[in-house]
Write a protein that binds this DNA or RNA. Structure first.
Lengths: 299, 299
DNA sequence: CCCGTGTTTCTTATGTACAAAAAACTTCTA
DNA sequence: TAGAAGTTTTTTGTACATAAGAAACACGGG
């Protein structure tokens, strides 16, 4: 049976919306709610029905209104609102990065299904779509081999990353003055400065800023294959930030300063300055990543 | 139920093997046969059983021998020996390239399943693994959108291809004298010359040679992401060669000459010569591909 | 005790069933 | 009659069953 995490997430969101209403306020139309919650009308109707049963919403059809008098309605637990695919990805990354499995090991679908408490179908589908990240590989005879987050994986990843980023940075710096991306870039620069000012307390916000900055650079001249590759980078860094807490504040501070130099180079539109700032930043990012790699030798 | 295309393919191969034996010759051991046919012993035993029933093999256990006296045994039809995944890919590419579906169109799993005469599960799995080729895209709300083999697809593909190929060519040309790849390259050069000599009759053999040459260049310094991207190139060209027969002989002849110039540049180990020969070849390959693109405007 | 076959167990590929969610269609009312 | 709710139809996501095929285990003869 299909899970109803979508319904539960939307229900929780709807609870928040209604809690802002006062007793007797009219409820927006189903179509409006659907747009606001980002789901179909079918799901909205299910939510309205449940809210009515709970007494938070009264009336029916075209005349529905909020009932503040009703007792507090408990939202669904956070965990039940996460799509299965996201849960599985998370569990798989933990399983791999925790080192429960070594590079070269065979992946057992049934085993994983039991461990992650999902049907084998879900694991199968996950592995299929996860293949593109290069961390697992299909065997000709069927089944999967774990390639793992190894030293060579990181090196190969960064070789491509450098090619792509240099290309995008070059394109970006030759954008016409009129491009709205310049404004975006200046805004991001300010965000970097702000974060640097509060680095002691907000250093964990860097992960998101990092991703947004590199994404912006890549939008100068879009290419679907570069975008796809960027998804890999994003995935790796997302989990890397979660798992490697060592020297986090220092690392992020250094990275912010490198970003600022990189941004200033872009703004200067000097090709050589852009290339060198970009290379410098990527080199230190690579170093950080490689240190958390699973190989024995670290050089 | 799992299909038995594997068994049928292996059975046909085994028929060929036994047809070379004379009456009374001993049959190799199950393990040996398994290795030769590239399947497990389980499948070999099934084959031996069938062959025995058909009278081509007599005896049992350790003493089995060929029986030439038996009438001709019919192999399974070619079509039944093709793995489902391959069949589906082929049908999907036809469906797309024939123009049965336009870019931006939604993909209906059930529809395709009926059309291709397979279960929805198979389509679903196919779409998932096919995503990496960039010709389809998953919608956030579920379902798939056809991106299609468009003008911009070809342009973006070649932008990356050029980056990767230039990088690999550069690495290749700086390989040490001792590398065995130089020998491989000289052998491929000879194959090109041979093909050029018989171009009138053998021009269709170029597709395979093309793929092998570019693959060789890429093996200089392997990178899993470049390898993955190369799979996309291979897929596209594989079908492109099958569908675009216009000027095929002329196109291939030109390409062979470009390859030869490219190979000679590599052998000369001159960076600038390599870069220019490589660029020149890719430019004409791009032209060819773009002409068979599905967009209205062709420039 | 090694190589080979016989036997059993495990794993994966594929078909079918069914609920969630989306989308399309219909009806109603201000 | 436009927009809203009611209803029906499609489509997708997940579970489960079963046969094909791989792998592991067991045993026997030289």
């Amino acid at each position: 049976m299909k899970t109803d995490t979508l319904f539960k997430r939307a229900f929780n969101d709807a609870l928040l919306l209604t809690s802002r209403l006062r007793d007797g306020d009219p409820i927006p139309s189903e179509t409006t709610l659907a747009a606001e919650l980002g789901v179909s009308r079918t799901t909205v109707r299910k939510i309205l029905q449940t809210l009515t049963e709970e007494g938070v919403v009264a009336g029916a059809g075209r005349s529905r209104f909020a009932r503040a008098s009703a007792g507090e309605v408990l939202p669904f637990p956070e965990a039940e609102t996460v799509p299965t695919s996201v849960q599985v990805e998370k569990q798989f990354m933990e399983w791999m990065l925790r080192g429960d499995a070594k590079a070269g090991a065979l992946i057992n679908e049934l085993d994983l299904a039991r461990q992650f408490k999902v049907a084998t179908t879900v694991i199968r589908e996950f592995l299929n779509s996860f293949q593109r990240f290069g961390l697992i590989e299909r065997r000709p005879s069927g089944g999967w081999v774990l390639q793992g987050f190894t030293h060579s994986f990181a090196l190969e990843l960064f070789e491509i990353r450098e090619m792509f980023e240099l290309r995008s940075a070059r394109e970006f710096s030759s954008l016409p003055e009129s491009s709205p991306l310049w404004h975006e870039l200046r805004r991001l620069r300010q965000e970097h400065l702000d974060l640097l000012g509060e680095i002691e307390t907000r250093f964990q916000d860097f992960s998101d800023l990092d991703s947004r900055f590199h994404r912006l650079v890549n939008t100068a001249v879009p290419n679907r294959f570069i975008d796809g590759f960027f998804d890999i980078i994003t995935l790796i860094f997302h989990y890397h930030y979660q798992w490697n807490k060592q020297d986090e504040r220092e690392r992020n501070e250094v990275a912010i300063r490198e970003h600022l130099a990189y941004i200033d180079a872009l703004l200067s539109q000097s090709r050589s300055a852009v290339a060198s700032a970009c290379r410098k930043h990527l080199a230190s990012a690579r170093q950080t990543l490689i240190r958390s790699t699973s190989d024995a030798a670290a050089g």
